[in-house]
Amino acid sequence: MLKDTGETILTDKRIRIGVQTKGLLEEDLSAEKKNEKRTRVKLTKRPFQMIRNAGFDCVDFNLDAFLKNNDVYAGKVGGFFEKSTQEILAYFEKYKQYLDECGLVCSQMHAPYPVEIEGKKKQNTFMKSEVIPKCFAVAQYLGIPYMVIHSSKLRDGKNGSVEGEIAANLDYYETLIPFIKTHGVKVCLENLYGGSSAGIIEGPCSDPYEALSYIETLNERAGEECFCFCLDSGHLNLVKRKFKDYTAVLGKHIRILHIHDNDGVGDIHQLPFTFRGTKGEGYGVDWDEYIEALRSIDFSGTLSFETYPVMSSFPEELHPAVLRTICETGEYLAQRITE
């Protein structure tokens, strides 16, 4: 039986501050193929220490950095996840050691995505039968209570429809119930968007009622709470929805967060508060509304920042200062949410 909250590690009620590992723990193993040259930087304790020194308690462990979504779309799904589960767990021994030594906890994990692309049957099978089961094993090994697995975007395909997408996603998520129960890792759905670089349109779980329907249906099928929700601030901003409308519907199902900001046009995962002007113009996230919404559901999980592009846009030498900025922003949000 899973614990009610899914929190296996964080026992006190203090809101924690976290940041994703992507962009910080640079290990590009995503397309580890014989003839493909990729930068592979040796993992050291330094980035873990840098995260800790900035004041963070937690990390969002990006297993999707080991199989990037660009590679999945390009059909390159081999490499890292072709290793056996034992080999993969052995690989993460150092991670576990460094996390422990630095006093960092993994509050959540992000699995590679998408698990299903229309017309790529062999690849989809590999994603579902190899990649995702191994993610559960890694999550359990690292003591991670929640894993985000994106719903597949099937509504815009040749034979796509919203109903068909939901049915296919429900069928897939249902197959995860034994893994969830065996490994003690709950799966979080996330509000996504659709479209392309040419324009954004609502996508899976953009609508809070659709998200609620997923979670209630799946938990009913599981007979206990196996599925929860990850609220992504930037994605919600892109589809012009209000946080309070979302929290009012999803309520306590919202267990984890992806916090980031954008210009209302691109999913650029940037620093909060940097997209509005002196008179409130601009299309960035309305952070006051965000705070109110989380306060309304008495949110007490981890304020986890999904801001990896910041690590590319700012010079490396400034990463400690940037991380400190993100962490202080988290501390401010935590204070406002709990006051």
Binding site: G23, D263, G264, Q270, F275, R276, G277
Partner: peptide
Amino acid sequence: NDGRDDLRQFPFTFTFLKG
């Protein structure tokens, strides 16, 4: 800025995708 309003905002945060 975002190319629409003169936001007088912080450098390095207006990016293409991936930063």
